[in-house]
Simulated assay, not measured.
Amino acid sequence: MRWANHGNPPPRRVEKSDAQWRALLSPEQYRITRQKGTEAAHSSEMCGLFEPGRYQCACCGTPLFDAGTKFQSRSGWPSFASPLSEGVVAYHRDDSHGMQRIETTCQVCDAHLGHVFPDGPPPTGLRYCINALALRKEG
């Protein structure tokens, strides 16, 4: 994915101090979004919810995904075929844990979201595997 090497421009920026993020987020949300953690597989009911609406970044409220691109991946995390628009998700090479992956973060506030994999459905062929605690459903 070219953006992992060259970046993509954000629509805006939200920056807060570590203390401000800690005050805003639950301890588990902070661990996942600010410390690049991962929630346990199948720990959220969000995996099985397919109602219309949009999913925002839990940290800054930026709309990231539309429910119309959400699909049942059976991976244990909410999965989407594409973000709402090109500028809202950032991509970074992640060589941790002996794997080569592409990490996804909120382009606006740098919150860790999850990873993107090349095994999703058409038309994108991508699976955005996202921590439920990094998202909040709107609408």
Rank of each mutant, 00 (worst) to 15 (best):
L24A: 02
E51R: 01
T62K: 07
P11G: 02
T104V: 10
G48K: 08
L25C: 08
T38N: 08
Q20G: 08
D119L: 10
G125M: 09
E51P: 01
D119F: 10
A67E: 11
G7Y: 03
W77I: 07
V89K: 04
I32C: 04
V88H: 00
K36I: 04
Y128S: 08
H112M: 11
N5P: 00
A132S: 14
P27T: 02
T38G: 05
A19C: 10
G61Y: 14
G125K: 09
S75R: 01
L113W: 10
G98H: 08
G98A: 09
Q35A: 03
K70V: 13
P9M: 00
A4Q: 10
A19Q: 13
E39N: 04
P118Y: 10
R54G: 13
H112Y: 09
S26E: 06
R31Y: 05
L64C: 06
H6D: 12
N5Y: 02
H6L: 08
G7R: 07
D18E: 10
L133F: 01
C129S: 14
G114D: 04
P63M: 03
H97V: 01
H42P: 00
S85H: 15
Q56L: 15
D95H: 15
P63G: 03
P9W: 04
Q107Y: 04
C59S: 10
G87N: 11
A40H: 07
C47E: 12
S17T: 06
E28S: 06
T124L: 15
L25N: 01
S44M: 13
R12H: 01
G139F: 01
R31L: 05
G53Y: 08
S43P: 03
A4F: 07
H92L: 11
H115N: 03
G61Q: 12
P9A: 05
Q29H: 05
A132G: 11
V14E: 07
L24P: 03
G68K: 14
T124H: 13
G120W: 15
R101D: 01
A19E: 15
F117M: 03
G48D: 11
G139N: 03
H115W: 07
P123F: 13
P27E: 06
H92K: 11
P121Y: 12
A58M: 01
S43K: 13
F80D: 05
P10H: 00
N8M: 13
G61N: 14
L25V: 04
E39Y: 04
W21I: 00
C60H: 10
A111Q: 02
A67P: 10
S73D: 01
S17P: 01
P122R: 14
S75I: 03
Q35T: 02
Q29K: 09
S79K: 00
H42S: 13
G53M: 12
S73W: 04
I32A: 00
A41M: 09
H115T: 07
C57P: 09
L126S: 02
R54F: 06
L84P: 02
R22Q: 12
R127T: 08
P52E: 12
G125W: 11
T38Q: 12
M99P: 00
N5L: 12
F65M: 10
V88I: 05
A4N: 04
A40G: 01
I102P: 02
K36A: 08
E39K: 00
N8C: 09
I102N: 00
G37D: 09
Q20P: 14
E51W: 11
I102H: 05
D18N: 10
Q20M: 03
D66E: 14
T105M: 07
C106F: 12
H6I: 15
Q56H: 14
F117I: 01
